[in-house]
Simulated scan of single mutants.
Amino acid sequence: MELNSIKPADGSKHAKRRVGRGIGSGLGKTAGRGHKGQKSRSGGYHKVGFEGGQMPLQRRLPKRGFKSHLLKFNAEVSLSELDKLGLAEVDLAALKQAGLVGSIAKVVKIIKRGELTKAVKLNGIGATAGAKAAIEAAGGSIA
């Protein structure tokens, strides 16, 4: 084999369709663009969502909802994850180190999902009412 004899595999390459090259080609005259109108002309097209001047659908529908940009700093940890952690005292740094919350998290809340068997003391971490009752029932506390 020589570098000058290398060819692509059979069928992997095919000739580009050449339009507007006479009636014998099958794509002469209008070159597959039909007759008249914006789409038939060179450079004639429109932006995404344009409906010919009619108010576009994305503008006809009402705006709805709100998403706070501060939510990315909030995180949740379940009771079962807290139980698996196995620490007597838990704070934000310990949760970040264990990988239970993201590195940008500022506010962490314990939620009541799963069971807690060990006594855990929480420092600077919030808890829902149900989670707080479960933590205190297991002999833990929230500071």
Rank of each mutant, 00 (worst) to 15 (best):
S103W: 06
A94F: 00
I104C: 04
V77M: 02
K106Q: 13
G124Q: 08
V107M: 09
G99M: 04
K112N: 15
G130C: 03
G86T: 03
K112I: 00
D83P: 08
L79D: 07
A131Q: 04
A119W: 03
G86Y: 03
L87G: 00
E89L: 05
T117Q: 15
K106T: 09
L116M: 08
G102I: 04
L71G: 01
A94T: 06
E115F: 10
G86L: 02
K112F: 10
L82S: 06
K72N: 07
F73D: 08
E76N: 14
A75V: 04
V107N: 13
E76Y: 12
L87C: 06
L82D: 06
G126T: 08
N123T: 11
A119Y: 06
A75W: 01
L82H: 08
L87N: 07
I110N: 08
L100Y: 02
K118D: 09
L82F: 05
D91K: 04
K118W: 00
G126D: 15
A127I: 03
L95P: 09
V77P: 02
Q97I: 01
L92Y: 00
K72D: 08
K106W: 00
L116Y: 08
K118S: 12
S80L: 12
V90G: 07
D91M: 02
G126S: 14
E76W: 11
I110P: 08
E81K: 15
E81L: 11
E81Q: 15
V120E: 02
L79C: 09
K112S: 15
L82Q: 04
L87M: 10
A88F: 05
V77A: 04
A93C: 01
K118F: 01
E76A: 11
L71Q: 09
V101H: 02
I104N: 14
Q97E: 14
A93G: 07
K121V: 10
L87W: 00
K112L: 08
V108E: 03
A94E: 02
V107E: 12
F73R: 13
L122W: 01
S80Q: 15
L116E: 05
S103H: 12
I125C: 02
K109V: 12
V107A: 10
A131T: 07
A119H: 08
K72Y: 00
E76Q: 15
V108F: 06
K112V: 06
A105Y: 06
K96F: 01
L122F: 01
V101M: 01
K109E: 12
E81M: 11
V90I: 10
E81A: 15
L71A: 11
N74E: 11
T128E: 11
L122V: 01
A88M: 08
I125G: 03
G102N: 14
G126L: 14
L122S: 00
T117N: 15
A129L: 10
A88D: 13
G114C: 11
K121N: 10
G102P: 07
E76G: 04
L95H: 03
R113N: 13
K84H: 12
R113A: 13
Q97R: 12
N123C: 02
E76D: 12
L70C: 00
